[in-house]
């Protein structure tokens, strides 16, 4: 039951992209087409599950003071393996994702979950959490990519859509469209979210470096995001 909860919370309630606002870089960059988004989501999910399992299994071995460098090395190793798999089996996806594939290393979702969850919980729970978060990430990417591809390019997974194909708004597939669609989606989450996400639920808090960041007043953005001041 508890394991199931750990799995399901990542999908909607604590969706890493739309509610926790983590991993914005790959979300904006790879959501130009549905195929790319799904590929990115699958690669990140695989890394997330493996890193949560490994870090959870080693949580008593890794010294507290050097844990972040240890996590980064472990995650980098996993990302390299995934990168080799993608290169070998789906070279087209490798070309499409390009630089963003090795950059999964610095994706805050993975480091964030390692720090927030895997370092404190059992292996099975951590695997469930990683899987749930990965699915949540993939779903958010899929949603954003669908909007951008359908309206920006008039296609869905490469299949042409009759009317939209002649009237597409190509700016949506370019950089500004990414920011715009993401902003609208988060506004929708604020509007329709069952419970208003509290300030302690926001991106900076789940970032491993929140403490450092808040010292300089950096995280005021997300802190003020959902209050009514």
């Amino acid at each position: 039951m508890n394991t199931l909860h750990n799995f399901s919370k990542g999908i909607i309630k604590e969706n890493p992209v739309l509610v926790l606002v983590l991993g914005t870089c790959p979300t904006l960059a790879t959501s130009t087409s549905v195929i790319n988004a799904l590929g990115m989501g699958a690669a990140a999910t695989l890394v997330l599950i493996c890193s949560n399992i490994v870090i959870s299994a080693l949580r008593k071995v890794i010294p507290d003071k050097v844990r972040i460098p240890c996590y980064i090395v472990l995650i980098a190793g996993l990302v390299t393996s995934v990168q080799m798999l993608v290169k070998a089996y789906t070279p087209a996806l490798n070309d499409a994702l390009g630089i963003y594939l090795p950059l999964i290393v610095v994706n805050c979702i993975i480091l964030g979950r390692a720090e927030m969850f895997a370092s404190k919980n059992k292996v099975i729970d951590s695997a469930a959490d990683g899987f749930g978060m990965g699915i949540g990430f993939t779903l958010a990417l899929f949603l954003m990519a669908s909007i951008r591809e359908v309206f920006g390019n008039g296609t869905f997974c490469g299949i042409e859509i009759p009317v939209l194909n002649d009237n597409h708004v190509s700016i949506l597939t370019m950089a500004p469209g990414g920011f715009f669609v993401f902003g609208l989606l988060i506004a929708c989450v604020n509007k329709f979210g069952k419970h208003k996400p509290k300030s302690n639920n926001s991106g900076c808090e789940s970032c491993p470096q929140a403490e450092l960041c808040s010292k300089k007043g950096g995280s005021t953005l997300v802190k003020g995001a959902n209050t009514d001041d």
């Binding site: 500004p176 920011f179 902003g183 929708c188 604020n190 953005l221 003020g224 995001a225």
Partner: peptide, 15 residues
């Protein structure tokens, strides 16, 4: 109200 904080920041970033 729903655009306060992050959403309006993202839309400004789009512009």
């Amino acid at each position: 109200e729903n655009f306060r904080g992050l959403p309006i920041t993202l839309i400004a970033a789009a512009i």
